[in-house]
Design a protein around this nucleic acid. Structure first.
Lengths: 111, 111
DNA sequence: AACATACTGAAGTATCCACTTGACAATTCT
DNA sequence: AGAATTGTCAAGTGGATACTTCAGTATGTT
């Protein structure tokens, strides 16, 4: 039960492309098929699939094929890794500020 | 008093390089000169400066030259932009979970 | 069965990027 | 002043990357 170590190289690289970020933005709304993603982007299916591979490898996206259609959705793992990185790269005084901010904001929505 | 819009392309690109992330990791501890950065990385001064330019452009690093030595330190702006992005790319249920987590964790350090 | 749909795979290409070298400039030290 | 330190600039190079095209392969539909 080992957690695979995060490859931040590939994670940030994945996020560094506007097309890939557009894909993610789209998936925040709801899961979409490959061709559903390709259409508004104005690129070939092939290109989309290539981007999806990259996004899957860093666990930002999960895809599943049912019949002939591959459905893509967001996967939280990559996002969590990203947050982790940000947390680890704060200077000490910023950490303190953050905890304060969280303390002030917290009681709003105790779902 | 307009805030310049964040160029996420360049921001993520900047973070996608291991050398640049090594530089940031180094600067979390304390400000360092250019040659101070170059030495443990095993690359030329020139290369370091090129990386620094990229990091400065996305406001992850701030540098200042005094006499002949340029001192580099972290700049929070880029990091904040990064967090912003992550927040905007959460699926709704994750947002709820997060607020819960924050609520539970908050009262620890009300500095 | 015939046809359309939704993807998959291999191979090519133009561009970008990290890094180097080598020549130079500006400060500080002795 | 002379020498060492610290950084800057311009140009080049090898490898990665975002696409494309073209030729398939399943899977649905009629």
């Amino acid at each position: 039960m080992k957690k695979s170590p995060v490859d931040y190289d590939r994670l940030f690289h994945a996020l560094g492309d506007p097309t890939r970020r557009a894909i993610l933005r789209r998936l925040v709304q709801r899961p979409v098929s490959v061709s559903g993603l390709a259409e508004p982007l104005g690129i070939t299916l092939t290109a989309v699939v290539q981007h999806l591979q990259i996004l899957e490898e860093v666990h930002l996206v999960h895809t599943e094929k049912l019949g002939r259609v591959r459905t893509c959705s967001l996967q939280p793992d990559g996002f969590r890794a990203l947050e982790q990185w940000v947390r680890n790269h704060r200077t000490p005084w910023e950490r303190r500020l953050d905890r304060l901010g969280r303390f002030l904001a917290a009681p709003n929505d105790p779902t």
